[in-house]
Every structure is written in C-alpha cells, then in structure tokens.
C-alpha cells in the first residue's frame, strides 16, 4: 500500500475551489451587473495585442520538479497583467504597455565580489548546464494577494556552486538593469535605482530558491522580470528581484531597495509571516487572485519544513 505524507505547502483537495463553483461565480458576476451594457462595451476589452502566446517562446524539455503546490495555477493572463514593476511604471496597466517592447537579448550578467569565477556572462551561458525545471509555488505579495505560479528556472544553488564563492562570501546581492531609456519608470525617483536585493548565502543555497527564466512553460514576459529573475517562495514577492544584470558575493549584508525606502516597513529578510503585522497591511490573511474569500497566510508561506531551520534563534519580529 502506498502511503503519501502531505507536505505543509501542499494543499488538501478540500481547500481548492472546485472548478464548478468557480465557474458559477464567474457567470454570476458577469450576469449580475447588466448584460446589455456588457454586450455594448464588449469590444472595448478585446485582448491586448502582444499578450497572445507566441509558440516560439515555449521552453523545451522541462523537468517536473517535486516542488509543486497541488492547486490550480492562476490564469496566465492574470499573471501577465497583474504585476508590480516600478522600473516601467507604478500603475499596472502602464507596466504591461511599456514593457511590451523591452528587449531581453542579448543580456549579460556580471558576477563580482567574493567569488572565484567573477566575470561577465551571457545569461544563457550562466544557466546552460542546468536542465530547466518547473516549480509550482504560491507567490505571496506583501500587498496581501497571492498567485499559484508554475515557474520555470534553475536552482540558484547550482549556479552559485559553479561560480564558487570564496570562504569570505556570506551574502549574495542582486541588481536590476538600470537604463531609464528602456525602463522609463526609472526616470522618476520613486525608489532609488537600480533596484537591489539580497539573500544570505544559506538562503541562496536552499533548494527552493530559483533563478526563473520562464513561467507557464514559456519564457518570461518582460513585465514579469525577463530574462532572469529571482524566486524565493517563502519570502514576500518584492524579494524576487527582476531583470537581473549583476550578482555580487559579499561579506556584509547588502542593502535592499524597499528596506532603504521604508526601513520600518520592509526588512532584509521579508519572510512571509502572518504573526508579524506590517504597518500597512495585516499579514494574517491573503487573497489568492481569483478567489473571493481571503485565506489564512501560512508562516514561511507554508515552507517551514524546508526553511525554518535557517532562522533558528532569530527573533523574527525583529528580523522581519
């Protein structure tokens, strides 16, 4: 007899919204406000050009990782259109518009600091030895929404190990492209540019941490952080730095953008934690995009078994 033990981040069947209920709700919402108005205005909301899925973006030979949340993935269209990427704009509609023509090849990543193989790498070379794998994670934004995203990428640990950090390296710092001509949102000092993020080396080496190049089986769209972004599923979304051009190994804790902007709101660690209330939002609950009711947020976004040991003896309300 086969006995399967359920991981903390897997979801019981009863938790997921049954497809039929979901569909009924959509139908109800659509009918509720007035069919006539809907019919008349319908053509206004034809899908934007450029969002149709061109097949040349398909990523081939994807390995199915064991890290998969057993829940229906968020609709791809919502993943593409609902995002924060202040490098392009602060309004979600504008982000998609302005990111559309963003060129993601050629793309190089500079590796620097306490590391043996420092240098400038073509992004494809940096990841070449790895087979792409699919990780289905819940993406939990600090704004208290979440999505189920089938990321495609490689474990950051493999890349770090190939680059061989020196014995002095204790942190990994990441930097987003800074090019206001291509990323017009950077023309205004909404945040200090370029966007920077960082992880402790042991966090970077955790098997859950991924450098993502795709989602939903295709290469990333620019607004989602193409061509290469970080995904750290037990941390709030803003840790997942996008469009990375520099990776630096450091001895000391590197600065991080949101922490620099509002230190009392955003810490270096930014682990998902329902018990540590944020001055702006209670983090006790979250709304999965597509759901009506909020659900309870899980500590470490449900990945406690895999990552809680990293923070033993740390006061997580202090190191938030």
């Amino acid at each position: 007899m086969l006995i399967t033990s359920r991981k903390s981040w897997e979801l019981s069947d009863a938790d997921a919204t049954p497809e039929a209920v979901y569909r009924d709700r959509r139908r109800f919402l659509k009918l509720g406000v007035g069919l006539a108005a809907g019919m008349a205005a319908g053509p206004l909301f034809a899908p934007r050009s450029g969002l149709a899925a061109p097949s040349e973006n398909k990523i081939k030979d994807i390995l199915q990782s064991k890290y998969r949340i057993l829940e229906k993935a968020t609709e791809r269209d919502k993943f593409l259109n609902y995002t924060n990427f202040y490098e392009f704009a602060t309004s979600r509609d504008q982000i998609v518009e302005r990111a559309e023509a963003f060129a993601t090849r050629p793309w190089t990543v500079e590796v620097a600091g306490e590391v043996k193989h420092a240098g400038t790498y073509d992004v494809d070379d940096l990841l070449r030895p790895n087979r792409r794998e699919e990780r289905i994670y819940r993406h939990r934004c600090v704004e208290t929404w979440s999505m189920i995203v089938p990321w495609v990428g490689v474990p950051l640990a493999d890349v770090v190990k190939r680059l061989e950090p020196t014995s002095k390296a204790r942190y990994v710092a990441f930097e987003t492209l800074h090019d206001p001509e291509r990323m017009p949102g950077q023309k205004r000092p909404v945040l200090e540019w370029p966007y920077v993020e960082g992880l402790r080396l042991d966090e970077a080496l955790n098997p859950l941490t991924v450098l993502a190049v795709g989602a939903y089986g295709e290469t990333l769209a620019p607004q989602n952080g193409a061509p290469i972004r970080l995904v750290v599923p037990w941390k709030y979304g803003f840790k997942g730095i996008k469009s990375i051009v520099r990776i630096t190994f450091t001895e000391t804790e590197p600065p991080t953008s949101w922490n620099r902007s509002s230190p009392d709101e955003y810490g270096f660690y930014a682990n998902v934690n329902p018990d540590v209330s944020h001055p702006r939002w209670s983090q006790a609950k979250e709304r999965l995009i597509g759901d009506f009711f909020k659900r309870r947020t899980l500590k470490f976004n449900g990945y406690g078994e895999e990552v809680a040991h990293l923070y033993q003896n740390m006061d997580l309300s202090k190191f938030f």
Binding site: G32, V33, A37, F45, Y82, W145, I289, F292
Partner: peptide, 16 residues
C-alpha cells in the same frame, strides 16, 4: 464601474 464589472474589465484583483 458597472460596465467594467459586467464586461470582466476589473482586472485580476477586482476587489482591489
């Protein structure tokens, strides 16, 4: 707002 609601025009996070 009524028109948007009726035509699925409220985006991915309609409540927000």
């Amino acid at each position: 707002l009524g028109v948007l609601a009726a035509t699925d025009g409220l985006g991915a996070n309609p409540i927000e």
